[in-house]
Simulated scan of single mutants.
Amino acid sequence: MSRSKISVIGAGNVGATLAQFLAIRELGDVYLFDVVQGVPEGKALDIQEGAPHWGYDSNVVGFTTPGQEAYKNLEGSDVVVVTAGLARKPGMSRDDLLGKNVEIMLDVGRNIKKYAPDAVIVVVSNPADIMAYAIQKITGARPERIMGLGGSLDSARFRTFIAKELNVSVEDVNAFVIGGHGDDMVPFIRYSSVAGIPITSLLSKEKIDAIVKRTRFGGGEIVDLLKTGSAYYAPGVSILAMVESIVQDKKRVIPCAAYLSGKHAEHYGASGIFIGVPIKIGKEGVEEIYDIDFTQEERELWNKTVQSVKNNCQKVDSFLSGKL
């Protein structure tokens, strides 16, 4: 049985960390791409040389992408993960990156369309829900074959902060975050529990509000601490969970940016955009979207994040106008 082929476009901190995680988990052979001469080859070789101690047999190879010849190595990819883009710097929001990263998506998306049109695409570049929208426009791929990072990472942060506050194992914390992968994301308190016990029975409103705030600005907190970049370990393993569910057809239910249309668009009041909702992830990509009910307060928060995503999608449309 042949191994899966997983291509990671962008060999920065997130992409390289993910490549290592993929190899360690032996999910397939990993192809790493980047525009900086020698970086993908060097990092791939470094990861490969750790195989004897880790005990994996996955192949990890790198390709520098100035010009288009290197992108030919995307051919046959089962999954393409897009991490390429500028990293956040102190004082920058995810939305500040939008214009520059859409330009990068234009090049990346054209090559995915040319060489790996049948791959499931996982978009990580910030802001991930907006970049997923851009990639779909550029590639013309079926929307259910595309998903964006967001809720997978945000929910991991939310669960971590709850576990730390209560001094319990994160394994027993069940919580998730929906909406845009930005500062107006919606941590779902009603659906959050510890071994089935609602967190509202375990924590005061003030404590919960503080955890929600920290979750919303969790990425910025790390940017401020690092000074020279953004998070990559937690994003790496959050992407790993998504890719693993695709490659192994695990059918995991993870909040991710998915395309809303039809009955789901009607339920969520959002049509034609990618936004974080609970989805089932399998070999076909987004295999099911789950509709969840809102209280009035939750609906107001949801409407705010929807409007923010819609506004940014309009900016993408303007940028791409005449370029496709």
Rank of each mutant, 00 (worst) to 15 (best):
L97N: 12
I197Y: 01
M147N: 01
E221G: 04
G322S: 11
R94M: 08
G67E: 15
A23P: 05
V173D: 05
K72E: 14
I279K: 04
D154G: 07
K250I: 09
N312G: 12
A175H: 03
L27G: 13
D183Q: 09
D129S: 13
K283A: 14
G272R: 05
V39W: 01
P255D: 01
K100Y: 06
N101T: 05
V61S: 15
K5H: 08
Y71E: 05
S193I: 03
V309W: 08
K250D: 10
R88S: 14
G262F: 00
L106C: 06
M242C: 11
R216Y: 00
A257F: 03
G151Y: 01
K323A: 12
M242P: 03
N303A: 08
T295K: 02
G282I: 12
K114T: 15
S261T: 15
M1I: 09
V286Q: 13
T64M: 02
D184N: 07
V194C: 00
S58Y: 00
V170S: 09
A132T: 11
G148N: 00
V120C: 15
A23V: 05
N73G: 03
T65H: 01
A23N: 05
K207G: 04
K207F: 01
C313L: 03
A128Q: 06
A231N: 13
L22C: 12
Q314C: 07
P40C: 04
A156K: 11
W54G: 03
L98D: 09
A195H: 12
K89I: 11
I208C: 06
G150I: 07
V120S: 13
A231Y: 10
Y233D: 10
R216V: 01
V120G: 11
F161T: 00
A19R: 01
A70W: 02
E75H: 11
L22D: 10
V122M: 02
G150L: 11
L27N: 14
G38T: 00
R214I: 06
D249I: 08
I239W: 03
A231G: 14
S4Q: 10
I222M: 11
W302Q: 11
L32H: 03
S193H: 13
V177R: 10
I6C: 08
A163Y: 03
D293S: 15
V168F: 02
D118V: 03
G219C: 15
V14S: 14
S308Y: 06
A257W: 03
K113V: 05
L18K: 05
G55N: 01
L225I: 13
V35P: 08
C313S: 14
I199N: 01
A44D: 13
I6T: 12
S321W: 07
S93D: 06
G28K: 03
C256I: 12
L32V: 07
A44K: 13
S201W: 00
P235W: 10
F161V: 01
V194W: 01
F33Y: 03
D46C: 06
V170G: 05
D57W: 09
E49R: 14
Y191H: 06
L45K: 15
V173G: 03
K164N: 07
T160N: 08
A11Q: 08
S238V: 07
Y71N: 08
I197M: 14
A195F: 04
S201F: 00
V306R: 02
